[in-house]
Design a protein around this nucleic acid. Structure first.
Lengths: 146, 146
DNA sequence: AGGATACTTGAGCGCTCATTCAAATGTCCG
DNA sequence: CGGACATTTGAATGAGCGCTCAAGTATCCT
């Protein structure tokens, strides 16, 4: 672990024949090692897409509320403190990604969760936030367990 | 479970004295029940903020790469396939939220992960994506293992 | 000191996205 | 059928974001 780990880290001048791309100064050993375990680009996109859905306070509240039980749009709107229209729009996105499903009962439409993975992710995140209980930007603490 | 669970669900006409807000048709029992378990709005914002950071392919790749080992900016740029500047901007966001930390070694700046919770979330998500291996929008399958 | 390297930063731009408002759809009741 | 209700949808608007480009900072080597 100390013989030839870094090929660029201590190199005074990069040789001209080295550059295969814009970057002539990278560490090929390290890069190759990471590449083996690296997530596939397509998967990164899908994963980001999934996390992006959770990256909005309204949707977080929506999914969190639905984790308790199924709810109609107007109850959801009340619970998350938004307009019925706004909530409906968000539910549409959630439904498009199959995160929630609907059930009609007369005029009412009841929403419920449809993806156990998301619920797991959400709850894990919620647990973390409630543990630290700090604002993330500027004032966040690591290991704020006590 | 069938006595008086729903006050609005089967009510023909809402009485005029009922409306305390814009919504005159909600189910107070259900709403109250969910409210007890509901995430606090401030926590929802923090949680969304956290997930939002993970809601970008470049940042997902960045964090995923750093989960393997510490890396300098130019290696990261190579691994995620972006410009050094773009990567540096993203790392700035990540650093602001204390998701990554830096270590200087001469001219190089090495980044590494600084939040175990995020890593856990990321890996959990990655595992899920690699299990289903399907695009989320339009063609997603649940339990698409076979 | 001077030049090269590794990274950061600020401005600007195009794009996405969450919300609002207004209108439409579908359902129940008389 | 006609009115009230629950929800959906489309257009418009405004804010935020990620990228590029160009300059700036910090470090190393001679």
């Amino acid at each position: 672990m100390s013989a030839q780990v870094s090929s660029a880290r201590r190199r005074p001048r990069p040789e001209p024949g080295d550059e295969a791309c814009d970057l002539v100064h990278l560490d090929p050993v390290r890069v190759a090692r990471v590449r083996e375990r690296q997530i596939r680009p397509a998967h990164a996109v899908i994963l980001a897409e999934t996390f992006r859905l959770l990256g909005d306070p309204t949707r977080v509240k929506l999914l969190d509320a639905l984790a308790a039980e199924e709810l109609c749009v107007c109850d959801l709107a009340t619970l998350v403190g938004g307009s019925v229209s706004a909530v409906s729009h968000q539910l549409r996105s959630l439904r498009a990604l199959r995160l929630v499903r609907t059930r009609r009962d007369g005029r009412m439409v009841y929403y419920s969760l449809d993806d156990a993975h998301i619920v797991s992710l959400l709850h894990q995140g919620r647990r973390h936030v409630e543990e630290v209980g700090q604002a993330p930007a500027g004032g966040r603490r690591r290991g704020g367990r006590g």
